[in-house]
Design a protein around this nucleic acid. Structure first.
Length: 855
RNA sequence: GGGCGCAUAGCUCAGCUGGUUAGAGCACCUCCCUUACAAGGAGGUGGCCGGGGGUUCGAGUCCCUCUGCGCCCACCA
């Protein structure tokens, strides 16, 4: 009994145009990728899908990396694992806020009351943004993200991601808020979360604190000014600084303890120019004798080194920069002289830029500046999403311990990184160097609006001042809560802000504080224990390399603290898309070439082919050419399948019908391809799996199919035909399944012509199903070589491949000749050779071709 | 300053644990409308495998070093 032979389901003119929408609909209605939650943990393969930032643009980079994960998901599914493949949307946080501001022309002013009748400006004016209440603002955020998420979903479906669309989440939705708040409360209860009033890196544009992981250095041109500080004996101590505007915040001068030039000064004091504040000269190992004059001024705070000095040397705090990045308007109390107070008045309220100009002018006029300013290029810390240098201001913030201050925890987290299987392995180095280089705990609070609020209220004392040690917390059952509208137990709304009452924490969590819980959110942690136990810990975290320090590390921290485990066993790291000029694909280019446009033009399978050809972790050039090749491969699969099935080929129930040596050799060769592809996929190397399958496929089409064509048509009797057709059908079935993870549409299309069900739920091919074919793969290679030689003779003679050959004499070593002779009649038929003879001889394989007279 | 990665045909890249004359696609040249496919097929041109040392019977493949590029990290007065 065999599968029904060729039937009318094979179309006359097959095409790949338009098959994406058709199959996407079938997969949806059939529930092809629906997660079966009756399966146990051992049967499940769970993926912690990266939630894309929906307020960002749809970019070819998305298509690239999400295709990689989909290939793995499809492979695991065919291997028989029940794949949990959810989709999340990262919609909370600053990117959305910024997009809403620009899109609608509004800005959030938390002091305004909610306006139920608010309507967005008809013409957004970026210069004059309309101030609106926090609730109005959040509603606009939600309105816009819904649109963005639709666009992403449409793209993902069109690309053929095998996601279970019944498992989606948003990082702003109630489930994500509940998980974030619950995890935070547990961190708090265990002492892993704490608040602290401390110098914090601060973005003056967004007016929020920024975490170490969100910093980036940017080169900036600056100038060193050489400034003299009057010493007690009337001499001057010269320092060099790029930030003279901070002079009023100077609390000490510092030099290296071994620096003989300055040793006599340690313990003495100098006075700040113009401000006339007496400050000590101190010693610290971090002072670099090679830099500038070897002695530096310490200000509160110019950079993070200042913070270290300030902390370790117990220096006073004299901040002059406010939350808006401007010099504080009030004259500080430590300035006591008239000149000092006048000088300060001249810079009060100024931006640091103009304050610098005014200070340089004043210092110069008073003769404190020596020489001309020296230009320099310095690396300055920026918030990665900001465009003004960060300042350091002292604020009260929430932190989670991440090993930045404790050796034990840090070592545990480094060890977690070693337990994780990295693909490719060298990516672990980025993790380790980041964790080992941490210099503080994880700052998770942001002074923003569209995020998960801290589930915390503070009791107010009789003067209406919050007591930060007296936290009022919700129970886990109450979550999620918004402390700005919800009321703590035992209070009512009238007590908000009143003496003896309460006040809500105004801050929201950093977006990483939520997305670090993506497996918990997607997997139903504490909300759906039944689901959770079938998934946790996850099998795979796919992500990009630039967020190892943020998303990957913070996720490891949360799982380590909560459950003392790794959140997943594997991490696969994708590279970037590069411009043709080897630069990271820019936003502008990404917008010109829209992902949807690429899919329209090259087909989803074509685009996926390009993506899957990029090695794991490797930055890959954006290459339309590869997409065209992929599209051609898909069309070739369609046509080759049409041919095989058009012969009436059907899957054999017993491999004994495959009697011909060439057929058996081809199947044996395919078996080793299956082994290679399987090993590659097990190693998360979709690119290699594709490569070996593709290589086999082209030679299958060019050589094997051509060789057996005549026999399959019945040219040498029914037994030979049956062997050829059975082998072709089996090879087709195996190859369709090999290609299915990368080219889901065309393989499904062909599968539908002759098989039941979806190829994507069919078993991954195994060498075992080809084990009956105990052929010699060398036969394939040798016969192909001989066929090539005959073709070359025709090509050289500039005649058609159909031209008749009078005689072909094959010479070579006896073993090879024996192998070719086994397929001699196929070779003669494919080459149209009248007399094929074999002459054993030394040396490489040769074929002497005598063409028939051309009529 | 420390670390990671990359450097193979004009272009984009394979080359797994070292083993016969180094591969693919694109591009280029020549030819072929052949009944699966002209959105195709056949054949061909093209490479001191970044430079220099070393290990080995044998190195694109391992070691050292240099150069160039990219990225990550670093306390950037």
């Amino acid at each position: 009994m065999t599968t029904p032979a060729h039937d009318s389901r094979v179309p006359e003119k097959p095409t790949i145009d338009g098959i994406e929408d058709r199959w996407a609909q079938v997969w949806e209605s059939e529930g092809t990728y629906r997660f079966d939650r009756s399966k146990t943990r051992e049967q499940v393969y769970s993926i912690d899908t990266p939630p894309p930032t929906v307020s960002g643009s749809l970019h070819v980079g998305h298509v690239f990396s999400y295709t990689h994960t989909d290939c793995i998901a499809r492979y695991q599914r065919m291997r028989g694992r029940e794949v949990f493949y959810p989709m999340g949307w990262d919609d909370n946080g600053l990117p959305t806020e910024r997009r809403v501001q620009n899109y609608f022309g509004v800005r959030c002013d938390p002091s305004l009351p909610f306006d139920p009748a608010f309507e967005v400006p008809t013409k957004p004016d970026e210069k004059k943004q309309v101030p609106i209440s926090r609730r109005n603002f959040v509603e606009l955020c939600e309105r816009l993200t819904v649109e963005d998420e639709k666009a992403f979903e449409e793209l993902w479906r069109r690309l053929g991601l095998s996601i279970d669309w019944s498992h989606t989440y948003q990082t702003i939705d109630a489930r994500a808020q509940r998980a974030s708040q619950r995890a935070f409360l547990r961190n708090l209860a265990r002492g892993e979360a704490y608040q602290s009033e401390a110098p914090t890196l601060w973005d003056v544009t967004f007016r929020t604190a920024v975490a170490q992981a969100e910093l980036e250095d940017r080169e900036r041109e600056g100038k060193y000014f050489r400034i003299g500080f009057p010493a007690a004996d009337g001499s001057r101590v010269f320092i060099e600084t790029t930030r003279p505007e901070l002079l009023a915040a100077c609390v000490a001068l510092v030099a290296h303890p071994d620096d003989e030039r300055y040793q006599p000064l340690f313990g003495s004091t100098v006075r700040t120019p113009l401000f006339d504040v007496e400050i000590p000269v101190v010693a610290h190992r971090l002072a670099d004798p090679e830099k500038g004059s070897g002695i530096a001024m310490i200000c509160t705070f110019g950079d993070t080194t200042d913070v270290t000095w300030w902390r370790e040397l117990n220096l006073p705090t004299r901040p002059i920069i406010g939350w808006d990045g401007r010099i504080l308007p009030e004259t500080p109390e430590w300035l006591t002289t008239d000149t000092g107070r006048e000088t300060y008045a001249a810079i009060a309220g100024a931006t640091s830029f103009s304050a610098k100009e005014r200070m340089v002018e004043a210092l110069g006029a008073a003769g404190y500046v020596e020489g001309d300013p020296k230009p320099t290029v310095q690396a300055v810390k920026f918030y990665e999403k900001g465009d003004k240098p960060l300042e350091i201001v002292t604020t009260r913030q929430w932190y989670i311990r991440n090993g930045g201050r404790e050796t034990d925890l840090r070592e545990q987290l480094v060890a977690r990184g070693s337990q994780l299987s990295w693909h490719p392995p060298y990516m672990e180095a980025r993790y380790r160097s980041w964790v080992e280089g941490l210099n503080g705990d994880w700052l998770i609070s942001r002074q923003r609006f569209f995020g998960v609020p801290f589930p915390v209220w503070y009791r107010l004392d009789e003067h209406g001042m919050p007591s930060y040690d007296d936290l009022l917390l919700p129970t886990e059952e109450q979550l999620p809560v918004d402390p700005s509208s919800d009321v703590p137990a035992g209070f009512d709304e009238s007590q908000r802000g009143a003496p003896g009452g309460f006040v809500g924490d105004p801050d929201v969590m950093d977006t990483w504080a939520t997305s670090s819980l993506s497996p918990q959110i997607a997997g139903g942690w504490e909300d759906d224990e039944d689901l959770w136990n079938r998934l946790w810990p996850f099998d795979l975290r796919p992500q990009a390399h630039e967020i190892i320090r943020t998303w990957l590390f913070s996720s490891v921290v949360r799982a380590h603290l909560e459950d003392d485990v790794l959140p997943w066993s594997n991490a696969s790291i994708s590279g970037w898309i590069l411009d043709p000029d080897r630069k990271k694909m820019s936003k502008s280019k990404g917008n010109v070439v829209t992902p949807m446009g690429l899919l329209d033009e090259h087909g989803a399978d074509g685009v996926r082919y390009w993506a899957a050809a990029g090695r794991p972790g490797t930055d890959t050039a954006f290459d339309i050419g590869q997409m065209k090749i992929g599209r051609r491969l898909a069309i070739k699969i369609l046509n080759a399948s049409k041919f095989v099935l058009g012969l009436g080929a059907a899957l054999p129930t017993d491999l004994d019908v495959v009697t011909d040596p060439l057929d058996r050799a081809m199947l044996a060769s395919l078996a080793s391809v299956v082994d290679d592809a399987t090993a590659a996929f097990d190693d998360y190397n979709y690119a290699r799996a594709l490569e070996v399958a593709e290589q086999f496929f082209w030679s299958f089409c060019d050589d094997h199919v051509e060789l057996v064509k005549d026999r399959a048509y019945g040219g040498r009797g029914p037994e030979g035909a049956a062997s050829a057709k059975a082998a072709l059908a089996l090879a087709l079935s195996v190859q369709l399944r090999l290609f299915a993870p990368v080219l889901p549409f065309v393989t499904e299309e062909v599968w539908g012509w002759w098989q039941q069900g979806s190829v994507h739920r069919a078993p991954w091919p195994s060498a075992a199903e080809l084990a009956g074919a105990t052929g010699d793969p060398a036969v394939v290679a040798d016969v192909a070589t001989a066929l090539s030689a005959i073709r070359k003779a025709k090509s050289d003679a500039k005649v058609s491949m159909r031209a008749d050959v009078e005689a072909a004499v094959v010479t070579g070593d006896p073993d090879a000749l024996g192998r070719i002779e086994e397929a001699g009649s196929d070779l003669a038929a494919a080459g149209r050779v009248a007399h094929l003879t074999f002459v054993p001889a030394g040396g490489p394989l040769r074929v002497e071709v005598t063409l028939a007279d051309q009529a």
